[in-house]
Structures are given as structure tokens and as C-alpha cells.
Nucleic acid binder design. Structure first.
Lengths: 164, 164
DNA sequence: TATTGTTATACTCTATAACTATA
DNA sequence: TATAGTTATAGAGTATAACAATA
């Protein structure tokens, strides 16, 4: 009666393709010297300049101590700068440098190429369909598409796909 | 001319939803005492009994030394047994025990519930559509749906989503 | 000489908790 | 006393390479 049930493994396919997408993207960012975490920080600072390390940590779903070496590294490379807040000298105001802003533009190009490469096997109608279905799923499972959790947290298992 | 381009972030959504699917599945297997790696081994031994540690490592995309503690742990828990090959005494013949086979059935139930939960927000037509699109992508990007690579290898970045 | 499984070691990434400086 | 940032430490997970037994 039922078809050989392609939908029986949809969750599995989703896990595998998600991992593929992530690793392909990581490959591309590595070519410009960034880890995916670096890329996430740059992107967030692009849209929210002046963020403190604390609120950056919150948005990334990371712990404040993890943000320290992350910003250190970006600062050394001249992509991010730490400015002291004049109103509360405890926290920094993080901003992209000119170089950092340039890197953000590079990242956007990378994301576009990444998207194009990944969806190349589909027609544009199919891509649109897929985008809609995924957006529906994401919405229903309650993620804010703007929120960037999971910076690579210690969660054994998240890195592996379900094995049917 | 163009729509507000939902497809512009499809790759990103794919990464995020894939990570969600993986971590949800990991949660469920953890409830029965298995890591996702454990689950992968049990599944493979279910369909290929008598496998050696070496060929198991190959199929998992893991290194042989990693398989040792994995099998150790499953053996201690009485889910897998190591039998010596009569023809080549260098390698083991790995098999599920009766308990292991029972666990495999549990895993299949878990996978079904997982699938149902994940796709609950979609109609059955939409689920089927999604399954077809993902299968097309998977095929085009060349994975053998049966091959289970990525047992959680050391690949910094794979655990994090692209940050647009 | 090559191969299976094993062990020992080191490396990477991350979280936890204690610390400082400001408030 | 509470909060931002920092540091030191420890833990989990994995790969590498050397090793023993068998072929």
C-alpha cells in the first residue's frame, strides 16, 4: 500500500545533509583563516556593534570564558577591537575593524557560493520548496532564525548523525 | 523582482535543522544508555554480523584504535560479543548478543518516534516532498545512504552551523 | 613483510570554578 | 553584593604511532 517509504529516513537525511552543509561551510571559511566560531562572532558584531563579551556569549549560547580566547584571536588578527565602555568600565564594547568589516563581506560571498553549490542539484522551484519546508520546520521547532545558538558546545552526540 | 529570497538561507537552515535532528536523536539514545556511536555500531552489526573491528572501523569512517574502547564498552554491557575467527585468528567476528538484538529493535522504535516528532509540523504530503528533495540532494552530493561516515570525527567546525 | 587488534601518548576543544576589577 | 572579564585546571573525545600476535 505505502510506497517504499522515503519519508522513513527523512530525519536521518536531514542530519547527514546538515552535517555536510556545516562541514562544507567550515571548509570555505577555513580558506580565509576563520573557524566557524570566528565567522559567527564576526557576523554578530556586524549586526550588533558595541556588544559586550557577556552579551555576545549569551547570543552565541556560549560561556563567557569561551569568548575570551575567541576575541583575543580575532583582535590579534586585527579583525575586532575591544573598546572600553565609558559608562561602565567593566565591560568592553566590541566592534569590527575596517578589516573585520571587509571580512564580513567576504563571509557573505562565501555564504552565497555555499548556498549555490549545495542547492545546485535542485531546480530553482525545488530549492524554493525546500527553503519553505525547512523554514516551516524551523519555525515550528522554535528557533529564532536570527539566534545563533550552538557555537560548538560540549554535547557529545551532536556531532554525529542518527544511525537509523 | 525576486521574492525576499527565502532560499538565501536554505543552507543555513539545513545546518541548523540537521544539528537539531542529531541532538534530539542523541537525547533519545542516551535515555537507553547509548551514545550515537554505540547506536551506529549496533545498527551496523545488525545488518552485517561477523564483521571484524577493522572493517567496522572502515564502515564507520573511524580509525581502528577508536573501535577498541567502543566494542569494549558494548561487550561489558552484554550487547556485543567478540568471537574469534576460525580461519584467521587475527581478527574478531563481532556479533550482537540477544540483548544487543533487542537493543537494535529499541533503536528502530526510537528512530520512528524521532522521525514522527521531527516531521510533526508538516502534513504528510509536505513530509514526503521534503523526503524526496533531501534524497535528491543526498544522491547528488554523493552519499550512499547506507554508508555511515562521520562517527564524530575530529573536524573542528563540523559541529557548528554556518553563520550566514 | 603485511595485517589485526591493542596500548600509550598527546592534542584539541570545552566547561567549571576561582580570581580581579569595577559597580 | 553583584557583575564583566580573565585565568587555571580538569575533563571528554579523538588521532597518531609504536607494539604484540598472527598470517
Amino acid at each position: 500500500m505505502d510506497l517504499p517509504s522515503p519519508s522513513k529516513r527523512t530525519a536521518f537525511l536531514l542530519s547527514q545533509l546538515g552535517a555536510l552543509a556545516s562541514s562544507r561551510f567550515a571548509e570555505r571559511t577555513r580558506e580565509v583563516g576563520l573557524t566557524p566560531s570566528d565567522a559567527g562572532v564576526i557576523r554578530l558584531l556586524g549586526r550588533a556593534p558595541g556588544l559586550s563579551q557577556r552579551s555576545l556569549a549569551d547570543r552565541l549560547g556560549a560561556v563567557p570564558s569561551r569568548v575570551v580566547p575567541l576575541i583575543d584571536s580575532l583582535q590579534v588578527r586585527g579583525l575586532v577591537e575591544r573598546g572600553r565602555s565609558s559608562t561602565d568600565r567593566r565591560n568592553y564594547e566590541l566592534r569590527l575593524t575596517v578589516e573585520g568589516a571587509k571580512m564580513l563581506r567576504t563571509l557573505r560571498e562565501i555564504a552565497e557560493k555555499h548556498e549555490a553549490e549545495l542547492l545546485a542539484p535542485l531546480t530553482s522551484e525545488q530549492s524554493a520548496q525546500l527553503g519553505n519546508l525547512l523554514a516551516r520546520l524551523a519555525g515550528a521547532h522554535g528557533f529564532d532564525t536570527d539566534l545563533h545558538r550552538d557555537l560548538g558546545r560540549k554535547d557529545p552526540g551532536t556531532t554525529t548523525q542518527p544511525q537509523q
